[in-house]
Design a protein around this nucleic acid. Structure first.
Length: 105
DNA sequence: GGGGTGACGCGTC
DNA sequence: CGACGCGCCACCC
């Protein structure tokens, strides 16, 4: 039960649809609090399940990918995003176009 | 129990 | 317009 904040963040990240990206603040807000932006970064940093947690779909509020990503080659994240159909502009993603919107369910 | 760290966000200069 | 620092909160040791 009391799923740790990390678990919550992982769930949100896993909910990101294909071809879309979300920002740390967005995930933090969906996880519970926007101030967890830093925690989100830490959570993805440990990324226990990179196969289920598409951390590469997570970008900062600028739409830029993290350089520390280097979990196989910094540019790896950009390549994966393009593979989903996300257009990378100089390493920047058009948030206004691909930023994942919170479903209203 | 306390301290240090961190893949952010925002404000201010 | 660009760059810098601060704050925020959670996890690990």
């Amino acid at each position: 039960m009391e799923a740790s904040v990390f678990e919550r963040i992982y769930e949100v990240v896993k909910q990101i649809p294909c071809g879309q990206v979300a920002t740390y603040g967005q995930i933090a807000a969906l996880a519970g609090n926007k101030r967890w932006a830093r925690v989100v970064g830490y959570a993805l940093h440990v990324n226990p399940d990179p196969e289920k947690i598409p951390c590469y779909r997570v970008v900062n509020r600028e739409g830029r990918v993290s350089e520390a990503f280097a979990f196989g080659g910094g540019n790896r994240q950009i390549t994966l995003l393009e593979a989903e159909g996300v257009r990378l502009t100089d390493g920047c993603v058009d948030l206004k176009r691909y930023q994942w919107e919170k479903p209203l369910y």
